[in-house]
Design a protein around this nucleic acid. Structure first.
Lengths: 171, 171
DNA sequence: TATTGTTATACTCTATAACTATA
DNA sequence: TATAGTTATAGAGTATAACAATA
């Protein structure tokens, strides 16, 4: 690609780089900032997870499966804002790998509960270490207090219902 | 699609919805929150801009062209973190529409400076009104002070160089 | 009849490489 | 030789519709 930003400064003889445009009103546009922040943080997360053959989507599913919540595929779809058909592919991948299993819910046999295997739990622990390091890199310019504040603000946007969350800075 | 979140709560007889998973550690993961916040805000922005036939990418290019900064395509590519080939398509679209023109830089005829037309400036004003309404919707759960704080934190992440920006809340 | 999971398909977005014209 | 823009192409990500099993 052409991955601007970090190392792309001062290249051409004209002194014109993308940095010059940071004076634009766009630099204060929240959706634009979300897009750039997300791109950078998922790039770091992907790079970190690559060494154990995971992607962030699969990591999210694995994490949700490992917390004792016994999620159905439908719930995963809703919470991750992904289409049910995408969950199928993600669970297929994790199941092939022996990290999770599908269990038919005895109370409604249409639903499949996603459960972790011991190997899945081990994989998650490894992944969480890598993710934490990646997130530290993504948020390196923020203090711990600033990260916590950012976490609270983002949760207010994403979960406007406003359940009293603890902002535990897992990432 | 299956667009979870907003209206998907309380559907199945089991009382199991995606909302239940908000207790997960994933709900405190910053990249996850970025992804959901970005998805929601760009969805709103796209819906708003659709009525004038623009997408957010094209809007960004148009805005940068209209501020007197005389950006080259390379600069747009770097600042928007898009590949140069994607800029070509965006400028093509805006040019077909009569909103911008390409001008060869006389000092380096390889470079094309993107300039707005009067029609382009009018289109931008319309777009900005729509974008502002969309952003108000996306950030409805935040006070003005919280928005400003979010803006500052995001800029610290995206522009770690730390030029003294004004967080002018253009969106 | 409605819902869960599944499959298939198309469309957008993103990434990569090669080409041209200028430098 | 190197860079700006362009073109073409392949891959990932996303959206949509139809189907089988179950309710």
């Amino acid at each position: 690609m052409a991955a601007a930003g970090s190392d792309a400064a001062c290249r051409n003889g004209n002194g014109r780089t993308g940095e010059r445009l940071a004076g634009s009103a766009l630099a204060s546009d929240i959706p634009f900032l979300f897009a750039r922040a997300r791109a950078a943080s998922t790039r770091n997360a992907h790079a970190a997870l690559a060494q154990i053959g995971l992607k962030v989507r699969a990591f999210s599913v694995l994490l949700l499966a490992c917390e004792g919540l016994r999620p159905t595929q439908r719930e995963l779809s809703e919470f991750l804002s992904l289409d049910p058909s995408q969950i199928v592919a993600l669970v297929d991948e994790l199941e092939r790998r022996g990290a999770v299993i599908r269990q038919a819910d005895p109370q409604d046999r249409r639903q499949r509960i996603i459960l972790p295997t011991p190997a899945g739990k081990r994989l998650l622990r490894k992944a969480q270490g890598l993710i934490q390091a990646a997130n530290d890199k993504s948020l390196g310019s923020l203090t711990q207090a600033e990260r916590q504040m950012l976490n609270v603000l983002l949760q207010q946007i994403v979960f406007p219902g406003g359940r009293d969350r603890h902002a535990s800075e897992s990432g």
